[in-house]
């Protein structure tokens, strides 16, 4: 129980009347990488966005069931969504740096938390960029606009920006889908290093990526969680026929 970070219980999500997630129940282990796979529209991204309550932004969405993060139901009325999002960071499919300098991008999160001290901020910027393995590339151009970076650099900058708020959990929504193979492998390497300290949940379209980066894999299909288990066993001996069909490329 101690190494379960997130416990999902009968979680369903509706867009208006349409049920998009159907009674999802799963345990997500701490300090591991959990991959969410499945064909387009299966609900894996929607599910990911439930974990930091990003779906709150869509007015027609309603959610039933429980999402317990370290035992606390994050959909409880007394829970402040802002604190949830500080604890659960998110990296998006399309890199989305602010149109500010590299430094200001990283400092954004600490600043909104009220950090003003310049040396403290400097320190956070450096550690975050180091953690995201991009410090050496960027240290001499911290005042340059983040928009001038390459796609891969931008995405690692966004990861660093997420780390700067020191979350426990990092959600990644197809973080490498728009990147070239070299940038992709850098991101995957990064994911591998980060799981020492963080619980990572990654949505991916790419089977090999799921197999390479994750410890556990959950297969979603049409709003249902079909199967979840150790990545090894999901990819070598899946229990469900649908899972096998999907990972062997028979559909999707």
């Amino acid at each position: 129980m101690k190494d379960i970070k997130i416990k999902v219980n009968d979680l369903s999500l509706y867009y208006g009347d349409k049920k998009a997630l159907n009674e999802i129940t799963m345990d997500i282990p701490a300090n591991k990488v959990t991959a969410l796979i499945g064909p387009s529209g299966c609900g894996k991204s929607t599910f990911l966005r439930c974990i930091n309550r990003m779906n709150d932004l869509i007015p027609s969405v309603s959610i039933t069931g429980k999402m317990l993060v370290e035992g606390v139901d994050i959909y409880d009325k007394n829970v402040d969504v802002v604190n949830i999002r500080k604890k659960i960071g998110m990296v998006f499919q399309k890199s989305n740096p602010f149109p500010k300098s590299i430094y200001e991008n990283i400092a954004y999160g600490p600043r909104i938390n009220g950090m003003k001290d310049k040396t403290e901020l400097d320190e956070i910027v450096e550690t975050s960029l180091r953690q995201a393995a991009i410090w050496d590339e960027l240290k001499d151009r911290l005042d340059d606009s983040a928009l001038g970076l390459s796609g891969g650099q931008q995405q690692r900058l966004c990861i660093a920006r997420t780390l700067a708020v020191s979350p426990d959990i990092i959600l990644m929504d197809e973080p490498a889908s728009a990147l070239d193979p070299i940038s992709t492998s850098k991101i995957e390497e990064l994911v591998h290093q980060l799981k020492e300290q963080y619980t990572i949940i990654i949505v991916t379209h790419n089977m090999q990526q799921a197999a390479r980066t994750s410890d556990h894999t959950a297969f979603f299909y049409m709003g249902n969680l079909i199967e979840m288990g150790k990545t090894n066993s999901i990819f070598t001996k899946p229990v469900q026929k649908q899972t096998e069909d999907y990972i062997t490329g028979r559909f999707g």
């Binding site: 932004l57 989305n96 938390n113 920006r161 708020v165």
Partner: peptide
Amino acid sequence: ELREASLALGAT
């Protein structure tokens, strides 16, 4: 995307 980036960092 920019609004989401900010909100996801815990900004109000």
